[in-house]
Design a binder for these strands. Sequence first.
DNA 1: TTCATTTGTTCAGGATTAATGAACTATTGA
DNA 2: TCAATAGTTCATTAATCCTGAACAAATGAA
Lengths: 124, 124
Amino acid sequence: MRPLFHPAIEDVTVEGILYALSDPIRVAIYADIAGQKCTVGCSNFLTVADQAIPKSTLSQHFKILRENGLIRSERRGVEMLNATRCQEIEARFPGLIRAILNAHAIQSRQTHRAKQPAKRNSRR
Amino acid sequence: MRPLFHPAIEDVTVEGILYALSDPIRVAIYADIAGQKCTVGCSNFLTVADQAIPKSTLSQHFKILRENGLIRSERRGVEMLNATRCQEIEARFPGLIRAILNAHAIQSRQTHRAKQPAKRNSRR
DNA sequence: TTCATTTGTTCAGGATTAATGAACTATTGA
DNA sequence: TCAATAGTTCATTAATCCTGAACAAATGAA
């Protein structure tokens, strides 16, 4: 099994960050990790927003978050501990992560209030 | 030819915005339009960052920007005038567009300074 | 040690999405 | 009516994504 790849912060791109967070599941995962005090394992997200995610899919999502510089993952015993790299990104792209998480929170509140509003299309 | 579709601002999603701007060509186009005083036609972008873009591809890029709520396009005579919807988005997701454009500007400066630094990978 | 359990990765395939040349539509002006 | 200009649509190929199945690594118990 290959060692985990983490890009140096100066190799992290805006496009990479936006791409990684342009998926509703990934942004939900990232927002959750960012909100936690401590690091968390992947399996906390086998269901996201009442939706079951296959673990192979979940693994890919974490890989995308990791390889685009959004999180740092470290094996701890049998599980993987994930932490955000918010501070590093903040130093490179001030305000970016905060604005995205804030926008995500605004949207989540509206979606909740409308109680499943006929399935928003995530992309396109 | 179908009439152009523009989503209502309340149907614009964070994921849609991030997706649309996660492509290096689209974010460059968007940053350019946002920086202009007046609206501009699509053909201004047949080359972006010294890279030729086929016009069918360009048309798709504009469609993605438009249908994710980032720009408003209007036919004026034989050409298409495009304007950003920055203010509407600002009202819905405060600070989001500004932070993204700022990050893009930071990255562009660094990329320029390094004079084509061995092709940054745009995604992944 | 050996085995079962837990957690996550890798691989292979089918499904989806993106890129683009060619043909087409719409508008303008000669 | 014709040519030129500006974009769109379509069809095909290429690239990506999703996920079940098999695998790998660490732990703890027997």
